[in-house]
């Protein structure tokens, strides 16, 4: 998989499709070798064409915000408000939060250009730091 570091302190991604140790942080997907459908989770067979061969591909780190919501009421422990959206990253739809932008409809609009960024979720007792991703407005 993605984590190859053996020395502490270590950084681990929040999800296994976020790659931190191979150049700039980016997302990866399992791509069906027959039809090109992409999945962030593992699949027994392709949901589109039933093929069983997959290859790993990098997802573009810049994209366009296709839709969003500003969540003001969430489960306990989830900080609000936050912006959740779907980003079209060069043809692959990615789900993520928006960051480094005011969470209101004056500042967040569909069609805006965004790019991948990462941030720390904290460090555990072993000194391991968890890293998550989000998207921020691109200049």
């Amino acid at each position: 998989m993605t984590g190859t570091a053996t020395s502490s302190p270590e950084r681990v991604p929040l999800v296994d499709y976020l790659v931190l140790d191979d150049g700039p942080p980016h997302l990866i997907a399992h791509e069906c070798t027959s039809c090109g459908a992409r999945y962030f989770d593992r699949r027994n067979a392709c949901a589109s064409c039933f093929g069983t061969d997959f290859t790993t591909v990098e997802i573009a780190t810049e994209g366009t915000l296709r839709t969003f919501t500003i969540v003001a009421f969430a489960a306990p422990g989830v900080e609000v408000p936050f912006v959740s959206g779907v980003i079209d990253c060069d043809g692959t739809s990615v789900r993520g939060n928006l960051t480094n932008v005011e969470p209101d409809s004056d500042h967040v609009q569909t069609g805006m250009k965004v790019r991948l960024t990462t941030y720390s979720l904290g460090t555990d007792d072993q000194g391991t730091e968890a890293i998550s991703f989000a998207f921020e407005p691109a200049p």
Partner: peptide
């Protein structure tokens, strides 16, 4: 997804009002 913690609120929203908000906004 090999998640090391909750993803709701960190990687988008799982809440129904938020999911369907995005459906309409799309």
């Amino acid at each position: 997804y090999g998640a090391v913690g909750p993803t709701d609120g960190r990687i988008g929203t799982d809440t129904m009002p938020g999911v369907f908000a995005q459906v309409g906004m799309e």
